[in-house]
């Protein structure tokens, strides 16, 4: 890529960068930031339309590290879903992108996370999942696997909460798992998530080099590399791209996304149909018992209405409506007063 390269709206990749990261060198979260930058640049998302929201944690700091020009809101621990829901209702034209951690979404914010998905709020919901609380220095999180070992030797005895299983159980309309180190898979997934209408959940395994990258952890770089099984090989074809490749029948599956883009899936480890929710649940469970980390698109439903559509909300941003749109006419008001007499 030459220094002058620009995307379809004429912006250089630079325009998608943010402030310098203050996370540890080698933190998986930093890689995810870079993949987000690439995906948004490739998609040509207008920076001013992007709303970046997050909870609290190392992961939740990252919205400051991409798309400087966009509005960002580093909110409260576990409460990003509510902020994102409200922001999206206020202005349906925003591209809402939420970043969270596994502590943020699977512990303190589990309720909000689930309710956001059951409403199918239109947003991309990224969980940077390191199995630990990075920012508070390494306690187990609720996604840590049974028998995984803490840096100081303690063993986790409690069942993990799998964000993808939770997502499938509450009818989330886009569920994927990926790995911070696998840009080839993650970037198309991120693009598809933005193209999707409704909640797109991405549980991205993102090793914490400082507190959870040791032997006995199931979130270390080496463990993930050894156990990662990609379901499909993915390529994303944006709606604005002319080129269409013809595939042999049966060779690939195509997922038509809401904005006209297509996600092309080519079988790797599993012959999984991502429109089959039950199959996705079975696959998750089976891979877990096999000790595998299955990554890729688990489930997608492009037909479900998102929250604002279901609520029949005006297309025009609500925040732009004025007195004439929002106050009943004088006669209507007067007749209401008469009814109260």
């Amino acid at each position: 890529m030459s220094a002058l390269a620009v995307n379809r709206i004429g912006l250089a990749r630079e325009a998608y960068k943010g402030g310098p990261s203050t996370l540890c060198a080698g933190c998986g979260h930093n890689s995810i930031t870079n993949h987000i930058i690439k995906a948004l640049y490739d998609l040509g998302v207008e920076p001013h339309r992007l709303a970046k929201l997050s909870g609290i944690g190392c992961s939740s700091k990252t919205p400051a590290y991409f798309v400087e020009q966009a509005h960002g809101f580093n909110g409260l621990h576990g409460r990003m879903p509510a902020l994102a829901t409200g922001a999206g209702l206020a202005n349906r034209e925003l591209v809402v992108l939420g970043v969270s951690g596994d502590g943020d979404s699977a512990s303190i914010g589990l309720g909000q996370f689930m309710h956001l998905m059951r409403r199918n709020v239109d947003c991309t919901y990224i969980i940077e999942d390191n199995g630990t609380y990075g920012l508070t220095k390494g306690q187990f999180s609720a996604t840590a696997d049974v028998d995984s070992v803490h840096k100081k030797g303690a063993v986790n005895h409690y069942q993990p909460i799998d964000p993808c299983a939770v997502a499938l159980s509450v009818g989330s309309t886009f569920v994927a798992r990926s790995f911070s180190g696998d840009g080839k898979q993650l970037v198309p997934l991120l693009k598809a998530a933005v193209a999707h209408r409704g909640t797109a959940v991405l549980d991205i395994i993102s090793p914490c080099v400082t507190f959870n990258d040791h032997d006995g952890s199931t979130r270390s770089y080496s463990w993930v590399k050894d156990n990662d099984e990609g379901i499909h090989d993915l390529s994303f074809i944006p709606y604005f791209e002319e080129i269409r490749v013809e595939y042999e029948a049966g060779e690939v599956k195509e997922v038509d996304l809401y904005d006209g883009s297509t996600l092309v899936l080519r079988k790797l480890s599993e012959d999984h149909d991502p429109t089959d929710r039950l199959a996705a649940m079975r696959l998750l469970e089976e891979s877990r018992t096999r000790g595998q980390l299955l990554t890729g698109l688990l489930y997608v439903d492009e037909h479900a209405e998102d929250f604002a559509t279901r609520e029949r909300l005006a297309e025009q941003p609500l925040r732009d409506l004025g007195e004439a749109d929002l106050r009943p006419a004088r006669e209507q008001f007067a007749s209401l007063m008469r009814e109260l007499m």
Partner: peptide, 20 residues
């Protein structure tokens, strides 16, 4: 909303984005 935490959060998210 699912609780008052979320109710407040939604209202604040909307207020931040410019809605009343």
């Amino acid at each position: 909303a699912e609780d008052e935490l979320a109710a407040a959060g939604m209202a604040i998210g909307a207020g931040w984005a410019g809605a009343r």
